[in-house]
Amino acid sequence: MSLKADVQLDAKGLACPMPIVKTKKAMVGVNDGQILEVQATDKGSLADLKAWSESVGHQYIGTKEEDGVLLHYIRKSGDDKGIEKKFEQTIANEEVIDRAANGGMILDVREEAEYAFGHIEGSKSIPMGELEDRLDELDKDQEIYVICRTGTRSDLAARKLSEKGFAKVYNVIPGIGSWNGDLSKKI
């Protein structure tokens, strides 16, 4: 099953350094925060795209292999740590599992591909961009712990939920990027 990507790049059959060169060009057409899927058959692209993403400042999410084709997922300019967080009800990474066990829900607002490569077991995935249209999947009486990678998108999501009348909302700080527990890849 292919994961949801905003832009797809076909770099199949190309040898080094072409997958990198093509990825660099394709990134121009990707907006901040969107996901690029790079399809490649060059085995070197696995290490190269990861190193490239780190060097240039994008978030390398992960790679899966499908019928001999490597599918690399990269999120553009993934570093949003500098943005100020405003939502006041927060909860620490360490506390969230225990709290959720008492009937709360962990809501993961990262992109589908990020969720697929590692999430807290039992958490629900609603990407930030879909949140407004999927509010009916959430329960206003339940405690909701909103999580993302660095706490920035979840801050935004928590504020949005609060505006919509969800009172028991918490932003999980710092988020999956600093998660010490187990992460599941099951979808």
Partner: peptide
């Protein structure tokens, strides 16, 4: 040229 293009692609 491989190293050069790869480096240029890495900004």
């Amino acid at each position: 040229f491989n190293i050069a293009t790869a480096a240029a692609a890495t900004e």
